[in-house]
Design a protein around this nucleic acid. Structure first.
Length: 581
RNA sequence: GCGCCCGUAGCUCAGUUGGAUAGAGCACGAGCCUUCUAAGCUUGGGGCCGCAGGUUCGAAUCCUGCCGGGCGCGCCA
């Protein structure tokens, strides 16, 4: 790993050093918590290049006033060679102006670090398990799964880039009633493959054509052996084969989006290995599971409701509204009972857990958080666990909602959408909104090649850079950092914009919000396009200035590094940085 | 009835986790192509940050209560 320090990280350190100097001089008490101290660019660039709130947040605990502390801090900060001015503003902000050399150093850092520019050690090598998609293995992926898939995958990449080890995990729900239905559906297709006229697929089974090849494969393998046989002879077998086929199909769908998982965990295997039993025993020993009577459901009338004694997990002790059953009255595991054990299993090999769920599962967040808290928190340090809910995506075509019905077979598959608009468009679009907000996905708009469409806008910036570098090479100019002093304030402003990337990566990783990268890229692309257009009216502001090899080399070096930052950002989102459009 | 999420320009949305005069795109008005890609840029108007309190040096951001929208509320998955 390189020892190059990026600009923002460097100045965070400088402010910290200045505070240490004040402590050493007796001007500030030691041991203050500096967690709230920030060093970041001010919202209004006219205030300077960097601002810190250190004096304001430390004044009160230090027993002094912000102004006095700021003055002492300024006296330290002006000693830094790259600081040209340090001033106090407003309630006690300290604004710093930096020498051009600070930005030029950053530009060299981008070049030196290349694809690693923006990579952070923030995660300190701790392992984060990110579970996402986890679509039921009963059919192809549809658009309802898409957003969670993209958000989860981008988040995983982001956390890796921010210094975590990441496990990308898919939980295969291959143990519930729905896979029994899948097995029966496969049996119908199996009989059909053997020549039987099965007519309409019966109500309650999966009617999709995607099970036809599964039936054919079963027919080829087993002949007519299971045609008239009782269900207990074939259901487990057919279910297993059908699930395997569905998972193969889902992997193909995911591959279209460029998504791959490190681990597929099977609910059926989890149960076969006795994990839920172990969890129950462990919880019972601590009186966290007891036999109790479940309350009747609220908010709607259930006619056949009968109070029954069930093993309940005391989730109310950890903030849930109600204790939750882990087994059904027939003794089999509820989804929650197995999921609880599953999360405990995940926590054994990770320092933190993140689940990406659809908003329709929001009602079960409290119980699973309660379970993780109960099972990992005995030592007082529960495994950090977050559930990110992604809201549903409304599909539109020219402003009209696309009607979807599983029964009518008109649901929109992920594969169809990716084929129609492309992986990059799907991925970027899904990341241009914070996940917890509802979004529309209009086929007409997302393929539009204009600035209305952020995907093309960002890719266009990268393509322009590549095109410029190609043209320069053809004319005998090459990027070089030998005369970077030739760069002026407009160029340095562009560097300042790009230099935010490492900060944005860290902030996005901490917040688990990959969409921030997408917005950063849009802003950077806008800054680049604006700079580019200076050359329309003023040939002396173009990247290639025929009269000056030095200036051209410096500007091309700048262009190349902006391109590098765009590439690094797009890589996190899993979007291709096209070189030509 | 309860829980979770959302409410910011006419529309679609950001807002650096409590910072300075709240931003961008679309739409509307006015400009910029014998060009390194105009798939772009410049510029103008447009705001009770849902409402009301509270917390503090300081609130779109945190707390409480309302209002409006979405999702969910068997032993389903």
């Amino acid at each position: 790993m390189s020892t190059i320090t990026t600009l923002h990280a460097g100045f965070a350190g400088h402010v910290s050093d200045a505070l240490d100097a004040l402590v050493a001089a007796g001007a500030l008490p030691g041991g203050l918590n500096r967690g709230a101290v920030t060093v970041e660019p001010p919202r209004d660039p006219s205030h300077g290049d960097l601002a810190t709130n250190a004096a304001m947040v430390l004044a009160k605990p230090a027993g002094t006033n912000p102004r006095a502390l700021a003055e002492a801090l300024v006296a330290e900060l002006v000693k830094l060679p790259l600081v040209t001015e340090a001033s106090i503003a407003g309630p006690g902000f300290i604004n710093l102006r930096l020498a051009p050399g600070a930005w030029l150093d950053e530009l060299r850092a981008v070049a030196a670090l290349g694809a690693d520019y923006g990579r952070s050690a923030l995660g300190a090598g701790t392992t984060v398990n990110v579970e996402y998609v986890s679509a039921n293995p009963t059919g192809p992926m549809h658009m309802g799964h898409c957003r969670g898939a993209v958000v989860g995958d981008a988040l995983a990449s982001l956390l890796e880039f921010a210094g975590h080890k990441v496990i990308r995990e898919y939980y295969v729900n291959d143990a519930g009633a729905q896979v029994q239905v899948l097995g029966r559906s496969a049996h119908v297709r199996y009989r059909e493959a053997l020549g039987e006229d099965v007519g309409e697929i019966p109500e309650g089974l999966y009617p999709g054509d995607y099970l036809i090849p599964v039936g054919q494969a079963l027919a080829a393998e087993f002949g007519d052996r299971y045609v008239g046989a009782p269900e207990e002879d074939w259901l487990a077998l057919f279910r297993t084969r059908a699930v395997a086929a569905m998972m193969a199909m889902i992997r193909d769908d995911l591959a279209l989006l460029g998504i791959r998982f490190d681990r597929f965990s099977s609910e059926a295997e989890l149960q076969a290995a006795g994990k839920p039993d172990e969890a129950e025993a462990w919880l019972r020993a601590r009186d966290l599971v007891y036999d109790g009577v479940l309350e009747a459901p609220k908010g709607k009338v259930v006619e056949d409701w009968e109070p029954v004694a069930l093993p309940l997990f005391r989730s109310t002790r950890f903030g849930d509204d109600q204790d939750r059953p882990i087994r059904k009255s027939d003794g089999s595991w509820t989804y929650f009972g197995a999921d609880l054990a599953y999360h405990f299993q995940k926590a054994e090999s990770a320092d933190a857990l993140v689940d990406i769920w659809g908003a329709d599962h929001g009602g079960t967040v409290k119980r699973i958080k309660a379970a993780v808290a109960a099972m990992t928190g005995e030592d007082g340090h529960p495994t950090p666990f977050e559930v990110k809910l992604v809201q549903m995506v409304q599909l539109l075509r020219d402003g009209e909602p696309v009607k979807m019905s599983k029964r009518a077979g008109t649901f929109v598959t992920l594969a169809d959408v990716v084929r129609e608009v492309g992986k990059d468009v799907v991925r970027f679009t899904m990341l241009t909104r914070k996940p917890e907000a509802q979004m529309d996905f209009d086929f007409a708009k997302v393929v539009e090649a204009s600035k209305d469409n952020p995907v093309f806008y960002v890719q266009y910036a990268h393509a322009r850079i590549c095109s410029t570098l190609r043209k320069a090479a053809a004319e005998g100019f090459a990027p070089g950092d030998g005369a970077l002093d030739a760069l002026g304030s407009e160029e340095l402003a562009l560097v300042a914009q790009a230099a935010q990337f490492p900060r944005v990566v860290e902030a996005a990783a901490v917040a688990r919000e990959p969409h921030r990268i997408a917005f950063f890229l849009h802003d950077l692309a806008a800054a680049f396009h604006a700079y580019w257009n200076l050359g329309n009216d003023r040939p002396d502001k173009r990247f290639i200035v025929a009269q000056s090899a030095d200036l051209s080399a410096a500007r091309l070096f700048l262009a190349a590094q902006i391109g590098q930052v765009v590439r690094n950002g797009l890589a996190l989102l899993g979007v291709e940085a096209v070189e030509e459009m």
